[in-house]
């Protein structure tokens, strides 16, 4: 294990959860495929950073970083797909018309609007956290040498990513690079809270709407089905007198 990829205390606490995820075949496949999307999306975001930065050296480094991330995405995708092929799983039903499982790599940042130092600090903190977590995952997939090898390879790249983001941050902000890292950590923490808050709000919202669904909707559902039976099948003439006010949303 790289000395640079230290495991965060929170991840140590969450170790049983990580074990629960990685010990189950379906959850493992799902996780790998989700990582594939996150890494690919992250890669595309870093690519964007390479395209907008005015700094030539950073452009080259971002480009290398993006290529790594996109490659990681491919590795995860190929491994997930290979596992998926080895046995029939209930995961197959997930792909019925839904977009592939996904996420967005650097969703928290609007790349175009971020100065390089903020992006570097964010990337450094994020890469460091990812390296710590991937170290745990690597150790949890001991029974699966190919998946373990992927984590090994990615961890080697993560060291490069952690290093360059930090050294470049020191180059572009020689006086305040440490402060930038702390700021990125605080911002990450806050965004984590916002994600949790949004998650709770989403769960509560779903619950409220589900209750509404069963309490309020039945009479309307009956009316809707009655109206549906009266609807002609085939062409519906478009009335020339239809009230289409240009400013109306209906």
């Amino acid at each position: 294990m790289s000395p640079l990829a230290r495991v965060a205390p929170l991840d140590r606490i969450l170790l049983p959860v990580h074990r629960w995820v990685w010990n189950d075949f379906d959850r493992r496949v799902r996780k790998l495929l989700a990582f594939a999307e996150v890494e690919s999306d992250g890669g595309r975001d870093i690519l964007r950073a390479a395209e907008v930065t005015p700094d030539a050296l950073l452009r080259r480094l971002y480009l290398e970083h993006a290529i790594d991330e996109l490659h990681h995405g491919d590795l995860f995708r190929q491994r997930g797909a290979a596992l998926l092929r080895t046995r029939s799983t209930r995961l197959r039903t997930l792909f019925n018309g839904t977009p592939l499982p996904g996420g967005h790599g650097l969703d928290d940042l609007s790349i175009q609007d971020e100065p390089d130092h903020r992006l570097l600090a964010f990337l450094h903190v994020a890469e460091k956290a990812a390296a710590g977590r991937f170290t745990i995952y690597r150790d949890l997939v001991d029974d699966d040498p190919q998946t373990r090898a992927i984590f090994e390879e990615i961890l080697r790249d993560e060291v490069f990513h952690m290093n360059y983001t930090y050294t470049q941050l020191a180059r572009v902000m020689p006086r305040s690079y440490r402060w930038q890292v702390w700021r990125a950590r605080a911002s990450r923490l806050w965004k984590r809270y916002l994600r949790v808050a949004a998650g709770i709000a989403s769960v509560v919202g779903n619950a409220v709407l589900t209750i509404m669904y069963f309490i309020l909707l039945p009479p309307f559902a009956w009316m809707a089905r009655r109206a549906e039976r009266r609807e002609p099948v085939g062409w519906t003439p478009i009335s020339r007198t239809r009230d289409d006010s240009p400013t109306g949303q209906y």
Binding site: L216, L217, F220, M223, A224, A227, S239, R242, D243, G248, Q249, Y250
Partner: peptide, 19 residues
Amino acid sequence: DLIRGTWRSESGNRWLLPL
């Protein structure tokens, strides 16, 4: 807009308005 549109609509779905 929604109220006005639904009320005047030829599809006869005024019953939907309260919901």
